[in-house]
């Protein structure tokens, strides 16, 4: 059983505002879903898991700054909800 306080904690971790009403319905839904996926605990698992999917392994590239065109930069910046010149504007942090 999950508690409303636990739901609240998850929502805080996930940065989503939820209401008291949400908590009530989410507790119910979580119980149903967790009751279902908890069946996994009964499966006997062998310990060797590949820990990756597909046939290819990680591909590394140098950690370098790349130049993009003025148009691309403008395109990206114009999608920002708030900007000042060539910067994305956010609320004061400190």
């Amino acid at each position: 059983m999950i508690t409303p306080a636990e739901i609240e904690k998850l929502a805080t971790l996930a940065r989503i505002k939820i209401t008291e009403e949400d908590k009530v319905s989410l507790v119910k839904e979580f119980d149903s879903i967790l009751g279902y996926i908890d069946q996994l605990k009964k499966v006997e698992v062998s310990t060797d898991t590949e820990g990756r999917v597909g046939a290819v392994k990680n591909i590394m590239r140098p950690d370098e700054a790349r130049q993009i065109s003025k148009e691309d930069r403008e395109g990206l910046l114009s999608e920002a909800p708030d900007r000042e010149g060539d910067f994305i504007a956010v609320k004061k942090i400190l």
Partner: peptide, 13 residues
């Protein structure tokens, strides 16, 4: 979407 984000947050916590 919110339900799945929270569920994912739960199983990864």
């Amino acid at each position: 979407v919110i339900r799945r984000i929270l569920l994912g947050t739960y199983v990864l916590s």
